[in-house]
């Protein structure tokens, strides 16, 4: 417990522990649900867009492709309340776990700097080993416990903050596509976001063979029937 207090005091004094804070801030943001698509703009240079457009995305993209595509969890603008609460919980848990983890690590570091207690009995093999190579594993139990607790909290926080799982079974996935109204904002995220669309819809409504004159006539008839006034 002595080291616990001591290390937190040194931390309060603002002792710098270089390297780690920077790295932690990145992973922390990632863990806190930072949207990966924010980084995407860098890759979207003109050439990529052009090539992909020219390559003409086939009418039938196999569903495995769309399932395997990199998940960009897009947050829809209209998130319902429970999701928000959930996200806040996971963010708070992650933050708490991270603080705890860093505290434990720093405590261990501080502990390692302490001079060995004089009462420590010398190991029998220490005569042949350099003293610097001989690890003294006498970490106090509170630091060990703190580390384990921090890792557990982080695990729980990350899992609870992850996006909803998609069904693995084909029939279930397909049924979900048919049954649910598709979230349009997910479609906006491209192939990876959300459930995607029925990949075989292109076989029912064939864009390549679109009869535009027929569609125009149909629309004109709809307007004449007064459909335009109703909307």
């Amino acid at each position: 417990m002595r080291f616990f207090v001591r290390s937190s005091l040194t931390a309060l004094r603002g002792a710098a522990f270089q390297g780690h804070p920077v790295e932690s801030s990145i992973t922390g943001l990632d863990m806190l649900g930072m949207n990966r698509s924010m980084y995407r703009t860098f890759t979207d240079v003109n050439l990529v867009a052009r090539e992909n457009y020219c390559a003409n995305p086939e009418v039938v993209t196999t569903p495995t492709q769309s399932l395997l595509a990199t998940p960009t969890h897009s947050r829809s603008s209209v998130v319902d309340r429970s999701t928000l609460v959930m996200a806040f919980h996971s963010a708070a848990l992650n933050l708490f776990g991270l603080i705890l983890l860093f505290h434990a690590v720093y405590s261990a570091y501080e502990h390692a700097l302490l001079p060995p207690p004089t009462s420590h009995p010398p190991l029998s093999s220490s005569s042949t080993l350099l003293s610097s190579l001989n690890p003294r594993i006498d970490l106090p139990a509170d630091i060990t416990l703190e580390t384990i607790l921090a890792v557990l909290i982080l695990c729980f926080g990350i899992v609870s903050g992850s996006p909803e799982l998609r069904p693995v079974e084909w029939a279930e996935w397909a049924g979900k596509l048919e049954r649910e109204k598709q979230d349009l904002t997910d479609a906006a995220a491209g192939a990876g976001g959300g459930m995607g669309r029925n990949p075989y819809r292109g076989l029912d409504e064939r864009v390549g063979f679109l009869d535009i004159r027929g569609a125009r006539r149909e629309f004109a008839a709809w307007v004449r029937e007064g459909g335009g006034g109703a909307s």
Binding site: L184, A188, G202, V207, L210
Partner: peptide, 18 residues
Amino acid sequence: ISPTLLQPPAHLSPSACI
């Protein structure tokens, strides 16, 4: 971009189309 613009365009209902 509004998400509705990214729907593939074939066979929309007239009201969606307008």
